[in-house]
Amino acid sequence: MLFKKLNPLEKIYLKNTNKEAYQNYKYQLKVNDLPSINFLDTPKALVDFKHSGHLGDIIYAIPAMYALAESGKVNLHLNIGQKIKVDGNHPLKDIGLNEKSVEMLAPLLALQNKFSPINIYNNQVIDYDLDVFRQFPFDYSKGHISRWYFNCFAVSYDLSKPWLVVPKDTSMSDKIVIARSTRYNSPVIDYSILKKYNNLVFIGLQEEFRLMKAIIPNLEYAEVNNFLEMASIIAGAKLFIGNQSFPYAIAEALKTPRMLESYYKCPNVIPEGANGFEFSFQPQFEFLVKKLVAKPL
């Protein structure tokens, strides 16, 4: 498509005479500078990917990796120590991944048949740089993270089906498992209503647990050594409740019976498939908990 850049006077005139056309022009400017993606012409037995985090983004990128790898295996190189602009309070501040993240994630992905062992990126030759999705002009405050990758890399995948498989922790079969990061907390949701239940388990950071324990005194903490253990707890749960965080990404990938606390400023996570519910308001939250805990899932 032929695109002509406007000079300063033309831009001022367009901005003041046709606001919609001016917005379209600014969008075209961004699209005009997008990185090119070199798609594989023929399938490979081992397809190399690079990702710089965050952990949740990696989980949501897996369907695109599967689609791009086709019948081959995914060879994932994780780029640690890279700065990423974030809104809100993230555990790694402005860093996407560190060595501990990779160490914790490795057992979970090693269990997936489509993955070769993950490794740290050190200028290896790669086929697809998954970080380029951050250069595309999406509205990152809304939509669906997995589908941003689909849009970038021209693929599709059935997100209603599980894309992670782990053994279930059978000791969790009657438990409500909760994860709530300090990022993306809705101001109108009160988790204290859960204290009437006596089968509550929290997964996540100690500081996150401390905050939740203050409003749910009977909450128990499940400490994990890696994210495979975390995923097994989520997979075995009667019900998982979480906000837009890494544990919820795992629950979504597993299709565990799950409830998502949707954050009104940034609703960019969407449950898909069976037993996936979302809530933004307290009455609906309370209704769903009552309904889903009483119902065999």
Rank of each mutant, 00 (worst) to 15 (best):
L111I: 07
K114W: 08
T17G: 09
C266N: 15
K11M: 13
S186P: 03
L46S: 15
C266T: 14
E223P: 00
Y264S: 13
P162W: 04
N185C: 08
F202D: 02
I12V: 09
F227G: 04
F277M: 00
I216W: 04
K290C: 07
L76E: 03
V86Q: 14
R147T: 08
K195V: 02
K195C: 05
K26M: 09
N185H: 03
I234Y: 11
K295W: 00
Y157I: 03
S192E: 02
Y140A: 00
L194C: 08
S181M: 01
I120D: 03
Y248A: 05
I118Y: 05
E70S: 15
F287R: 12
I126S: 12
D41A: 11
T256A: 09
G242I: 09
V31M: 14
S262V: 09
L292N: 02
L211H: 11
E208S: 02
L97T: 06
L46N: 15
N89R: 08
L9D: 15
F136S: 08
Y263V: 05
W148N: 15
L159W: 08
F138H: 03
P137R: 01
N198F: 04
L108N: 02
A154N: 12
G81V: 14
I176E: 04
L2V: 10
L40Q: 03
V289T: 07
N32S: 15
N225G: 15
T256Q: 06
I189H: 02
Y264P: 07
I80L: 15
S186W: 07
P267R: 13
E252G: 11
A274K: 10
I270W: 10
N268Y: 07
P271M: 07
N151Q: 14
L239Y: 05
D174R: 11
I193H: 09
S186M: 11
N123Q: 15
Y13T: 03
L76R: 01
N243G: 13
L34F: 09
A106G: 01
P283S: 14
K26P: 01
L130A: 04
F3T: 01
F227D: 03
P35N: 08
E220R: 15
